[in-house]
Design a protein around this nucleic acid. Sequence first.
DNA 1: TTACTCATGTAACTCGTTACATGATTCA
DNA 2: TGAATCATGTAACGAGTTACATGAGTAA
Lengths: 170, 170
Amino acid sequence: MSLRHALLGLLSERPASGYDLLKRFDTSLANVWPATQSQIYTELTRLAGAGLITVAAEGPRGRKEYALTDAGMSELRHWLTETKPQLSTRSDVLLRVFFLGVLEPGQARTYLTELTTLSEEGHRELRRLTDAIDWGDDALSLYGRIALEYGLRFNAMRREWAEWAAEQIT
Amino acid sequence: MSLRHALLGLLSERPASGYDLLKRFDTSLANVWPATQSQIYTELTRLAGAGLITVAAEGPRGRKEYALTDAGMSELRHWLTETKPQLSTRSDVLLRVFFLGVLEPGQARTYLTELTTLSEEGHRELRRLTDAIDWGDDALSLYGRIALEYGLRFNAMRREWAEWAAEQIT
DNA sequence: TTACTCATGTAACTCGTTACATGATTCA
DNA sequence: TGAATCATGTAACGAGTTACATGAGTAA
């Protein structure tokens, strides 16, 4: 159900069209909660039907600008304060580790050293992003920085783990 | 498509019935790749249809014990060596961080301190597991320990991050 | 004989992906 | 006027969840 809340969250910052929201998903939310154009338009129609958002303005080319309603804001706050986040997520990376035993030790080590490289690249990419954004001292900047810091620490942790793991295979 | 490979992987260790596999999913794979009974039985039928597994024995109560075929083993190796793991996963935990700005700072801090607690609990639980298992020096033990170590480091990283993040909110 | 565990299958629904379809506006 | 961008919608399919349905074997 989180796509719904991601949309409410983005609309809590400012009104936007499906097209606008799609771009936000493809940039800032891409690594956290990816969504496709098809999914976004469908869910916006449903949210409007449920009264959580409303068409605040119409523009050229059939553009519909949605805005959060009071009910939508309540639902967003309720989600954030009254429901527990899902802590565990499916991990393709880790699933493969379980079955590395079917490979030669050398191949298993290759998998782990590639993970090391990919984690380093991920880390560099996030660092680049951090430097490219000019952060203000508004709430958006604060929580954006906190989310980015998570990504940096996560990639660092994964890199160190993969290095350590490769050493365990003899 | 990873459920398919998870099943092939488990069957590469030893033949098993849908019922057996369900128990493996509910224990060792629960935090890595959860799957339901319904999903497992459906996918087993499909895998048998595709010739990647075969009914090696039938037992009481309609029990069907599946075993990996050569084609199944090839597919498993192909997946492990020739396809890239999906690095990014949807994160409900992080999605919420993006929208903490709609809450009072105190409520936002509460969210992060609860994450700290949950990560500590997760860490403790994994440590308990590590101690409970008596590890051999076979491949299964080696890769099982490596996967568990990932979980320990991940929880530690998340705890430290959440503590740090709570301090950023004033 | 009753409760428990073993064991499988399927229907209905939601969520997510890919692809197709359409058209208006803007700018070079 | 032609290409790029803006803008929306829907169909088909695959993956995942919940619930229902059924029955055989086992052990108290």
